[in-house]
Amino acid sequence: MDFASLSTQLLVGLSRAMILFIVCAGLSFILGVLRVPNIAHGSLYMIGAFAAYSIFTHLGSSSSGFWLALILAPLVVALVSLVAERALFCHLYQREHLMLLLFTFALMLILDDLVKITWGPEYCSVLAPNILRGSVSMFGASLPRYNLFLLIVGPLVAIFLWLFVNKTKIGKISRAAAVDREMVGAVGINVSWVFAAAFVIGCFLAGLGGALVAPTVSICLGMDHDIIIEAFLIVTIGGLGNIWGALVGSLIFGVTHSFGVLLWPQFAIVFPYAAVVIVLLLRPRGLLKSVW
């Protein structure tokens, strides 16, 4: 294990953590405001990736196609989630908590098959634009450019989220709704629309994660099942509903996985799960303060 492979592996882990962070931040945001673990989040992530593929190929697989896909695919996902929320989900807010959870599961089942109908079971791939292809030599290690790009995007998203939650009115309202929803309703704010906004923003982030991951993986059915379980675990170890917890959790998850690849490739997948178990045993309610 030399320095070069170590730093490459670390970069891969960190960039994976950035994707996970973007997805989990959305999940955590929904969890914080609506108090529902959105099981359909993985499907929305998958739709983001497939939508990015479609937009990319429609625009002649060019570099500009990639950038446009990166902007449009999350909007498509946001639209899908807005329709689902306004048509069905918003009628359930008064109901028992478990029913909301089940609704998101039903949504996952439906969206998965809709993806299968729309895009078919084939593997799809998206090419990164020229400027992000290849790798950079740094300190004797070759670092893939796209992963470096993800390392820039992740913190940018984090900063935007921080600004959104702390500086904008809707962000503040959603934070208030997370703490005390009755009070928010009592001061004359339409809680139903706050919930809708939170749900759509969370799903937008899932779509963004999907669009960002598209050039690095082969897009296929089933990618939702893998990410959603990871996202749940990350959100749990970070502290439910805490966006910074999602960041910490993603870093733990991504880095342990990449070191698992170095140490014991066959069981690399076990390392992050074991890390999660250890964290939960030491701090059962997550590393950072949960909003609950």
Partner: peptide, 28 residues
């Protein structure tokens, strides 16, 4: 481990421990 927690945390911890077993069976 799970009964120390309640409701959603219970569920999450169980999913993580269960996934650990799944991952081992899947890879071994």
């Amino acid at each position: 481990f799970c009964v120390r927690l309640t409701r959603l945390y219970f569920a999450m911890l169980q999913i993580s421990l269960g996934s650990l077993i799944w991952a081992i069976a899947f890879r071994w």
